[in-house]
């Protein structure tokens, strides 16, 4: 007997239930109409909550009014950090006027030597200050992973309240299709494995900088 049949047989004998078809139909019904568990009450403005949570995870955040202002904002931030203006970028943000701001943005997968990776994001979660990045030909996952610095451009209208809301967006916008990787990124990489001391930048980026586009409060530019 195959391992599969033997293992499933053991489970069935243990459960001692008949009616495989009925149980299967019940399970399929559950999948067809997913039910949410207890939901958090995310009060106040979503973007403000997202910013507060992202900052508590040691991400840094700046806000601009329009996408055209992103390159100058990123250039200023890179200069303040003493970081190079040579960056690798995903195609979804590749069309921004980077060179006008003095940034050389190469649109491709990241390599080991790349120091700064710039990405867009699919959406962001206010509850936890999390970015959701989808892998794909235009948005290779390595850009947010290999460089020491990750800069993410987040349109304010893509900030949703919860992980469930993010999944609902995925279902409605890309039905029946998850890319190879849906990466939820919450701040820089970290480890506590030497004497429980938290260190940033274990394997992934040690800095995550988020630029929120639009919906900027007056005077915050």
């Amino acid at each position: 007997m195959s391992a599969r049949d033997e293992i499933l047989g053991r489970v069935r004998r243990g459960l001692g239930k008949g009616d495989a078809a009925g149980r299967r139909a019940k399970a399929e019904a559950l999948l067809a109409a997913p039910v949410r568990g207890p939901q958090p009450a995310i009060g106040g403005e979503l973007v403000a909550r997202f910013v507060a949570r992202a900052e508590s995870l040691t991400s840094t955040v700046s806000r601009v009014a329009a996408a055209s202002e992103v390159p100058a904002s990123v250039a200023a931030w890179l200069a303040a950090q003493g970081l190079d203006s040579y960056c690798v970028a995903t195609a979804d943000v590749g069309d921004l006027p980077w060179s006008a701001a003095g940034i050389a943005a190469a649109v491709r997968s990241a390599q080991d030597a790349d120091m700064v990776g710039i990405t867009g994001c699919y959406c962001a979660i206010a509850e936890t200050g999390t970015l959701i990045l989808l892998s794909g030909p235009e948005t290779p996952a390595s850009v947010s992973l290999l460089p020491e610095t990750h800069v993410a451009v987040v349109p304010a209208e893509r900030v949703v309240a919860t992980m469930e809301d993010a999944f609902a967006l995925l279902r409605s916008e890309r039905p029946g299709f998850l890319p190879r990787a849906v990466n939820l990124v919450s701040g820089p990489s970290r480890t506590g494995d030497i004497e429980q001391t938290i260190v940033l930048g274990a394997h992934g980026p040690c800095r995550v900088h988020i630029v929120i586009v639009g919906d900027a409060p007056a005077g915050a530019r």
């Binding site: 949570r53 999390t130 998850l178 190879r180 990787a181 849906v182 939820l184």
Partner: peptide, 10 residues
Amino acid sequence: TISNYVSLLT
């Protein structure tokens, strides 16, 4: 509140 990286791999 959440781990730094949560990946759904399909």
